[in-house]
Design a protein around this nucleic acid. Structure first.
Lengths: 302, 302
DNA sequence: CAGGGTTATGCGTTTTTTGCATGACCCGAT
DNA sequence: ATCGGGTCATGCAAAAAACGCATAACCCTG
């Protein structure tokens, strides 16, 4: 049995879809399907009821879920200890965030929390949205902060995970400024499409950018010239004038003020996302509990 | 990471030898060595100090040992539950024994224990000596009963595992009876070697039979005609007159009485082994504790 | 009962693991 | 000091496993 299979299974429990999980786990759907079957064969019991869609867990799958979480947590703990990683100082919070939020939203948000709550020792795990969700599920973090959009919902069972909205974030197209004017402007022309700095398809913001393009009243003429999975990677390319990139507003506030970047289109090209924070309902330490109450209080009036 | 690697590691902890564990785990030494390295690579820390022989555990290896045991126990428990295996009735003892002892020694021994102690509900896991030892190490059983000989010691740390001697067992060569006399008699003749019913090399008793042959004053002339890893398998072949087999005395008491088998040589061809019972010092249930005390009392006067 | 979306299967290819042969090394004995 | 038996590591070719692609089988919805 491979530990990898447990991660596969947990991803499948979140998405309820073989093809979606396969994508998120960076394998093809047949390979993913076979890995789940291998896990089932090893277990000697079916985990998934495939007779309908969306797939459901069998009772065995239901009961195995908690075991899988515990096994992964134990294996991670064993590894951490073997590596001699210093255990976290007491009351250090473990946050999991997608890269972009870690670089833009998080520092300011933490400062605002600390101003009312007091200092918070924290460890930050920056990955992509899916892995951050997996980290929460596996117990690798106390709190998860990520984007949310109705068309690309984060799959976390509300019965198990509690959620608060921390704010809103607008994703818009930006471009460098040349001679005092924005260099590229949507929608572009069919004869001369704009160079497009895109997210890799597996990135959460890739789907958001697609939504923005689909939702706009006009069709955009774009020619993909670059791909990466981090907003910051697109930003530096945009700053160099390589093209148009959809970026979260909070990632570009400084560049806008310094007139290095400008919106490459009006509000019709924008998509609004929530920024959410999640925690597991069960098993919070008193410290997490107290902080959660504070966030709740700070968020509600807003 | 593969669960298999954890079993490899536990075997290595027992034997302190890559080559010996490789043999016991049914892979070649290079493959075994690489699997241990793979485990170390995954962990990010060395487990084994290879600078001297016998190999020692590094501090990381020392600390990982208990984690590995716990992980294996958890994975086995998860599997058992997923298969819907009914949990053992309360106070059911789990015994691990090599096949031969399960068929010969155990029934009588258990009866003698029950006569003084009262009924004991038990589940018996019959495998080979090495896997039985692994079962104890992994927490898959409460009690381990196996052979012991100074030249082929069972590698269990006395600090962790408590031991009692249950009795002695003599391994001797036997052969079918033809026309009132033993059919094959050691040492045989160089010109006409005796047909030999042998244990497969990985069997514990294979080594014991070798010791018997080495320790005898005369060289034996044998021609291997059959191999299997269970004494009972050799016995049925011997009964059919296929040759000479080294068998534990307790396996042949009935056949000797019924004059179907006879010793194929005198006491000079015999090897005496202990029958031992082991348990983990820590974590015994009160019931195991009570039974252990009883065995102790029954064993000491003998 | 079509059509889009989902999981399973067949097959050729790639990657990984294994076994064998051999090298490097340690240790005790001559 | 060096030899010899035994140990673990490494190079390489063969075997096994996993993967991706194409496609079939299937389910749900309109």
């Amino acid at each position: 049995m491979e530990i990898k299979w447990l991660e596969d299974f947990l991803s499948l429990v979140e998405t309820h879809s073989f093809s979606r999980s396969a994508e998120l786990r960076h394998v093809t759907q047949p390979a993913f399907s076979r890995r789940i079957r291998a896990l089932e064969a090893w277990l000697g019991a079916d985990l998934i009821d495939r007779t309908s869609y969306p797939t459901r867990l069998t009772p065995a799958g239901e009961s195995f879920h908690s075991h899988a979480v515990a096994l992964l947590a134990a294996s991670n703990a064993a590894r951490a200890e073997a590596r001699g990683e210093t255990p976290l100082a007491k009351d250090t919070l473990r946050f999991a965030l997608p890269h972009t939020l870690a670089l833009t939203f998080f520092p300011k948000w933490l400062a605002s929390i600390e101003s009312g709550f007091g200092a918070v020792a924290s460890r930050l795990i920056a990955t992509n949205v899916h892995d951050a969700v997996m980290t929460l599920v596996e117990g690798g973090c106390d709190l998860l902060i990520c984007y949310h959009h109705p068309r690309q919902p984060v799959q976390l069972d509300p019965a198990r995970y509690e959620m608060l909205q921390l704010g809103l974030e607008t994703l818009r197209p930006y471009s460098a400024i040349a001679k005092g004017a924005v260099r590229y402007l949507l929608p572009g022309r069919a004869a001369q499409p704009l160079p497009y700095l895109a997210y890799t398809p597996n990135a959460y913001l890739s789907r958001m950018a697609d939504l923005a393009l689909e939702g706009a009243p006009k069709r955009a003429y774009l020619r993909k010239v670059y791909e990466t999975d981090m907003a910051e990677g697109l930003k530096v390319m945009a700053l160099e004038g390589h093209g148009v990139a959809f970026l979260p507003q909070s990632a570009v506030t400084r560049e806008l003020k310094q007139k290095q970047l400008a919106a490459a289109g009006g509000a019709e090209w924008a998509v609004e996302m929530e920024v959410r924070i999640y925690r597991e309902r069960q098993g919070s330490t008193p410290f997490v509990e107290r902080l959660w109450r504070h966030i709740e209080g700070a968020a509600r009036p807003a």
